[in-house]
Design a protein around this nucleic acid. Structure first.
Lengths: 148, 148
DNA sequence: GTCAGTGCAAAGCTTTTGCAGCGCG
DNA sequence: CGCGCTGCAAAAGCTTTGCACTGAC
C-alpha cells in the first residue's frame, strides 16, 4: 500500500470525506517526496489545470500534519516546507548557507544519538527536527576548497 | 570582556558606527540571553521609554546574525527567535507540543555525535540547529503521565 | 560636513479566516 | 439532503523596504 493510499485511507477511517483537492495535494506530495512548500503545491496543481485555492492547500497540509502523515519543516526561510512521513524512518536536511539548496541525509548513528539524548532528557515520546547549515558542494568549490 | 562589549567592539572594528538603538538591542539580548523575538525586543525597549522602530530591531538583528554574534532560531512558530552566541559552546531547544513553552538543553554527547555526523557527511565547517518537540513537564502531568 | 544609523509608514509575503456554494456519503 | 470540503477574497501577522531626518565620526 503506497503512502498516498495509506494516507487517504487513514483520513477516511478518521471520518473525513475525500474531496478532489485533498486527493490532488496528497498525489503531489507522494510524487515529489521531499520538501515542498505550499506555494509549490499550489503552482503545480494550477499548472495541471486544477483550480485549487491556496487556503485549501494550507488546510489540507494542516490536516495531514495533525494526523501524522506529513512533517512540516522549517528550513530557515520564511516559508514552511512539507514532506510525507515514510514508514521506513526519517531523514534530516542540509541547507546551503550560500545558495539555499536543500539536500536530505540519513545517518543511523546520529539518529541513535538523538534518541539517546531524548531519553536522557526525560522525553520519552519526543520527535526532533534537525537542520544542518553548510556550503553545498557547488558553492564550496566556488569558494575555493582547501585541496583545490 | 562581556558578550555585549565584545559584540559592540567587533562591529566597530568592522567599520560600523554605534548608534543608540544598536547598543540598546545588544543590551536587551545580553540580559535575556535566550530566545527573544524581534517583537519582544521591540516591546522591552518601548517599555524602557526608548522610541525604537520595528525596522531598526530587524536591521540590527540581521547585522548581528551576519556577523556571527547572534543565532537566529526557528522554533516552529511563524516568529523567529534570536539569542547571543556565547563563546563557551551552544545549546539546543525543546519546544512543548502542547503549550509552546521553550526550554534550553545542553548535551555534550549529542553535540559530539552531531559533529561526527557533519564530518562523515563531508561538511567540515557546518553549523547545526536542532529542535526537539515534546510535552513539557507541566503538560505531561496534565495529560496523565504513566506513573501518576 | 558626510553618510551610516534610525524611526515611521507603507508595502510584501506567507498563512489564516469568512463565507457561500458544491458534492461526498 | 446535511454537513464537510472547497475556492475566492479579504484579513492577519511577521518582516522588509522607502524615505527623510538625526547624530556619530
Amino acid at each position: 500500500m503506497s503512502w498516498a493510499e495509506e494516507t487517504l485511507a487513514s483520513l477516511q477511517a478518521a471520518g473525513h470525506r475525500s474531496g478532489g483537492a485533498r486527493r490532488a495535494v496528497v498525489d503531489v506530495l507522494s510524487r515529489q517526496g521531499c520538501c515542498l512548500s505550499a506555494q509549490q503545491i499550489f503552482d503545480e496543481l494550477r499548472e495541471q489545470g486544477r483550480p485549487i485555492g491556496a487556503a485549501s492547500v494550507y488546510r489540507i497540509l494542516d490536516l495531514l500534519v495533525e494526523s501524522g502523515r506529513v512533517q512540516k519543516l522549517d528550513l530557515g526561510s520564511s516559508t514552511a516546507y512539507y514532506e510525507p512521513v515514510w514508514d521506513d524512518g526519517h531523514h534530516h536536511h542540509v541547507v546551503c548557507d550560500a545558495c539555499g539548496r536543500v539536500d536530505a541525509f540519513d545517518d543511523p548513528e546520529l539518529e541513535r544519538a538523538l534518541v539517546r539524548a531524548q531519553k536522557r532528557l526525560g522525553y520519552t515520546s519526543a520527535t526532533h527536527e534537525l537542520v544542518l547549515r553548510a556550503a553545498c558542494d557547488d558553492c564550496y568549490e566556488l569558494a575555493g576548497r582547501p585541496s583545490g
